[in-house]
Each structure stands twice: as C-alpha cells, then as structure tokens.
Design a protein around this nucleic acid. Structure first.
Lengths: 219, 219
DNA sequence: GATGTAAAGTGAGTATAATCAGTTTTGACT
DNA sequence: AGTCAAAACTGATTATACTCACTTTACATC
C-alpha cells in the first residue's frame, strides 16, 4: 500500500542506482550480508590454520578489515563465530549425505553408514569438531539455538524418512531420535573421551542392531 | 622386600613424630590435602551463591585464604575447579541411587526411575548442571578424565547390574550403554537446548520402552 | 642447632575477550 | 544541495583467567 514502486517511479532516484531498485534488500542490508560473509571467511581460515584457541579476535577483525568492536556486532562472542563458521558447511554436508542414502540390505546397516559418513566429516578436523561438540552443547544465544535446531531438524528429518521407509518399524520418530542419541554419544566417546574411533563405531553398530532388530539379536 | 619396617626400626626418627610414622601421609602431604579441601569448599560455596561466571578466581583464592597463584597449583583452570567441586558429591549421589534401586514391575520403569532421580539432582542446580554438562564433554586434563571415568564406571556398573537382573535381556552391557546414551541426550535436550523436562522424560520413557521391549511396543 | 635443597606459595604482571562512549555513514525527506 | 535521525562502526579501555620470577617453608642430613 505504501511500498509500491511501479516501473517509472524513479522520482527521487540517483542516476547510477537504477538497477538496484528501492524495495527489497536495500544497500545497507546487502553490505551487512557481505561483511558477515567476509568475517565468517576470515574466521574460518584462521581457525583452520592456527586453531581456535590460538586465534585472537583481533586477528579475525584485522583479516576481515574491520574494527574489533564491529566483530561483536556480528557475533555475540568468539564461540559464536565458531558456530557461524560451521553452520552452513555442516548443513550442506548433512543434506548431501541424506540426498544420497546408502543402498544396503538392512536398516541398521544403512543408519550406521550414514553416521559413518558424518563421522568422516568430523575426522577431517577433529580439533574443531571437539570444540564444536563442546560449544554446541549449551547454546547461549537464541541465534545459536536456532542454528543448532536447523541442523538437528535436517538430521531428524533424514533419519525419520530412512526409518519410515522400512515397514517393520512401528514408531520411526522415536527410533530416529534414539539412533541419533546413540550416534551422538559415540561421537562424544571418540572425540571427547578419546576412545578409538573403530571401537566406538563397532559399539554403535551393536547398539543400532539392538535398537532396530530388538532384544533377541539376530539368531 | 625393601619397604619392610618391623616394630623397633625407629633408627633416625624424631621424638615428637612417633605416632605419625615415617612412611605414609607425612605432614606436607596432609597439609596439601587440607588446603585442597579448603579450596574446593570455598569454590563450591561461591559457585552456589553467585554462579560460575560471576565468581572470580581472585574471590576463590581470597575465600580459601591463599594467593591467586596457589589456586592454579591445585586446579589447572577455573573449569577444573568446577569438576573438583562436583566429583565427590555426584559420585556419592549416584552410588546412593544404585544402592537403593526402585522396586517397580518392569525393567524400563526401573531404569526411568533411576534416571529421574539423577535428573532430580541436577534440577536443584540447573545452571551448574549445564556448566558441568559442557565442561565434562571434552575433558582437557588427564586428571579430569579420570574423574569422569570413575563417575561413568559407577553408572555403568549400576545400570548393568540392574539390567542383568532382568533375565530377558541378551546383552546387558550394550543395553546399559544405550540406556545411558538416551538419558544423556535427554539431559542435553532439557538443560542444554532448553526443552521442558517433562517432555524430555516422557520421550525418554518411550525410548527406554522401545529399547527394552523391542520394536513391537507393548501390544 | 645449622645448612642445603626441593617443594610450596606468592602477587604483580600478561594476554585477550568483550564493552562502550564517541564518530562516521547511510538514506529519507525537504 | 541541505538537514536530520538512525544505523553502523571504531579502538581505547576494562575485566579477569592464568603465568612466572621470586620468596618462604618443610625437612633430611650433619
């Protein structure tokens, strides 16, 4: 009703701004987005190169070519930066995994394969994975919470779809949540408590088998 | 073979030290232990009164009547202090819970009751529980690792005993680990992700029921 | 008791995550 | 163009976990 701007409505418009249009994004908004991207890129490079603890917020600000104060306008804390860095990448990874589900005979084998692929992703950068694991446990800000939720939703949806496709399972949602809880705990044992990855995954296989096939195992 | 000290072997012994004996504790050792206890007590009181974040290491050192430097001779970090504070108390709680297991008809109901009692313990101090949850995920020092391990062993042993007592379960160790993983995840959802406790525990009940009674539920 | 030495203790100092009072930029309206 | 308010930005400053060069204490040996 008031934001309407037909096609000949450049009344007070600057000459060089024609293609941008008045409505939608707006220059401010786009600048902010670009700056956010620059910050995240700078943080990712530094975290990867020299680790989280040895990277100072000063370095990130310098690399992103902004003042230290500005950094905290975009991220509530250094830890938040870590989450920002990995959110997109992890979401993409998870979606790619579920987009091409493994073709194996049994449901528990398929689930294990999916979790193994997720673990592969973490194996590339165990130190960062550890940090993430720790930081994501207790989301401090609402922003972080929603980031985590989005990731979890993607995982639950993927798992539930896989499980629901196997007709013998009565309650796919519950089983999906249980399966993920078991995987999460395996990840914790591996990256957190320092257990051998193979050992953790073998245990997970047994657990998933029990979860899917029931108490009596496969005799 | 070489530590032998009969009963008349006080060759170079000081007069006033007779009852203490040369071997065993030693005054230095006992002093250190007492100081450690004082530090832990001071830290616990302050954490409880004003929370972890709002307690400075300076305050703890003052309350324990030692220098700031000395504090870090006893704890590697402020986070380590938190673990020191809760290790003893949590171990005691867990042991008390398993020493008096609930007398309920079904195994999954008994497990749920045990987990509920653990959750009660955390409910008394959710903020501290959150912190613990976070700090215990990735133990940094070996000392902390062994503290966590001791606690976990107590829990696994208790759960495995409960489960093994129910004859229908084929593999108690695996089921115990699975049950704890499900509980841990419920705790995370409740204290970490901010879900309602009742909701989390109802979900846990369904998960435990499925874990114990198998896929077909209870029809 | 005197002496040497290793353990324990100390607090001024350091590094750095996060803040905030002040400055600059943006863009709507005349 | 000129004006204004709001948004974005800034880096000097602050708060505090942790360190380290030095001092003090404990105790074995003479």
């Amino acid at each position: 009703m008031e934001r309407e701007s037909g096609d000949g409505a450049q009344i007070g418009m600057m000459p060089g701004e024609a293609d941008t249009g008045l409505a939608a994004p707006g220059r401010r908004e786009r600048n902010k987005l670009a700056k956010r991207a620059r910050i995240v890129a700078a943080a990712r490079d530094l975290f990867r190169r020299q680790g989280f603890a040895d990277t100072t917020t000063q370095q990130i600000a310098d690399a992103a070519d902004i003042g230290t104060g500005t950094l905290f306008l975009y991220a509530r804390s250094k830890e938040d930066l870590l989450v920002m860095v990995f959110r997109d990448e992890m979401l993409e990874t998870v979606r790619a995994i579920f987009a091409d589900p493994p073709r194996l005979a049994s449901l528990d084998a398929r689930l294990l394969a999916v979790f193994n692929r997720m673990a592969d992703y973490h194996a590339d950068d165990p130190d960062l994975a550890r940090l993430l694991l720790k930081e994501l446990v207790v989301p401090r800000s609402e922003a972080r919470r929603s980031d985590v939720d989005e990731l979890m939703d993607a995982i639950y949806d993927g798992l539930t779809a896989m499980i629901a496709a196997a007709p013998q399972v009565r309650n796919p949602a519950i089983v999906a949540r249980s399966a993920f809880a078991l995987y999460y705990f395996a990840l914790l044992s591996w990256l957190g408590a320092g257990q051998d990855r193979g050992w953790c995954m073998r245990l997970l296989r047994e657990q998933l088998s029990h979860l899917i096939n029931g108490n009596g195992a496969d005799d």
